[in-house]
């Protein structure tokens, strides 16, 4: 059940209506600002303040790792994109940046189509960049070579893009993640993944979100994706922290802790100090989804949230 006034609560209500109901409430409270595109919103003052405070909380916990802090823009090198199998695994989620590269004549042709309200997108050419589907992707090509002894720990934060328009407020097309990535030996990567399953639970519980860690899979595309999902689950590579936002039956993942094996190490020639192909792991917190879960759980006005939650987040 989602955030409806109790007199309208209806467990039999279709999920789409529950999504719309919560979205309307978020817009009504100026937490989200519609842009006319499903899954693309502006963020209001209080919504953004909650994200900033939760982000700071995660940063404090992650500081115990003494990580390097790196920030990448939400676009990344098309050549690097070509090395990570995303086009095979998640073609439906990709975002490619195209631009106009023609001369005066091509410009006139494009303008003609534009003014006749025809499809002018075919006049564009692929640029050097793709939208970043996961914020740790730009890190790996920058780590090509040999890692220092003990590997690397990196704190990343930024926007990711996934083309999946939806009325579900938690399924945004562009959203922020805060990640902590470990590059090193298989044992180091796995220990990082497992450490963050425990720590992630503690962080979520400290702000009153009753998350559960569950074995999960990525949304691999198509019929071939079915076997990839099954294999990923059999290998216990991915755990998601799930909590009900609009549905008790289909709780929403607000974070995940993942072991990538040597996928990125092999793709980008990252080696451990002793010369082996590096393994990697990352924990990711979906910042907008965390805010949506907090507003869902504690109410749409932060001043009415429980004292202990306000204290942990430093909301005053």
């Amino acid at each position: 059940m989602c955030l409806y006034p109790t007199e309208h609560a209806d467990l039999a209500m279709p999920i789409e209506e529950r999504y719309r109901g919560y979205l309307d409430e978020l817009v009504g409270h100026r937490h989200l600002v519609p842009t006319g595109v499903p899954g693309v919103y502006g963020r209001g003052t209080e919504f953004e303040r909650v994200i900033e405070r939760f982000d700071a909380l995660v940063t404090r916990h992650g500081a115990a790792l003494a990580p390097e802090v790196m920030r990448f823009p939400p676009i990344f090198n098309r050549k690097h994109y070509a090395k990570i199998d995303h086009i095979r695994n998640f073609p439906d989620l990709m975002g490619s940046v195209h631009t106009f590269t023609g001369g005066d004549r091509e410009h006139r042709e494009m303008l003609g189509r534009f003014e006749r309200d025809e499809d002018w997108s075919r006049d564009l050419s692929a640029s050097e960049v793709m939208m970043t589907p996961a914020i740790c992707y730009p890190l790996y090509p920058s780590a090509t070579g040999t890692l220092p002894p003990g590997g690397r720990r990196v704190d990343l934060q930024g926007y990711a893009f996934r083309h999946e328009p939806s009325v579900d407020p938690a399924r945004m097309q562009i959203f922020r993640m805060h990640e902590f990535v470990r590059l090193g030996t298989p044992d180091e990567a796995l220990a990082h993944r497992d450490h963050w399953i425990t720590l992630g639970q503690e962080i979520f519980h400290s702000v009153g979100l009753p998350t559960q860690p569950v074995v999960a899979n990525d949304p691999f595309f198509g019929r071939g994706g079915k076997v990839q999902k099954a294999i990923q689950r059999e290998q216990n590579l991915k755990y998601e922290f799930v909590v009900p936002i609009c549905s008790e039956e289909k709780p929403t993942a607000i974070g995940s802790s993942n072991y990538h094996l040597d996928h990125f190490g092999a793709a980008f020639g990252i080696r451990t100090h002793d010369g082996a192909v590096a393994h990697s792991a990352c924990v990711g917190f979906g910042l907008e989804r965390v805010a949506l879960a907090l507003f869902r759980t504690h109410g749409l006005e932060t001043r009415a949230w429980p004292r202990e939650v306000r204290d942990v987040l430093g909301l005053g």
Binding site: R88, G224, G225, V227, I231, Q232
Partner: peptide
Amino acid sequence: TSLSTVNLML
């Protein structure tokens, strides 16, 4: 691998 399983399956 997971991805080569897909190629093999198809």
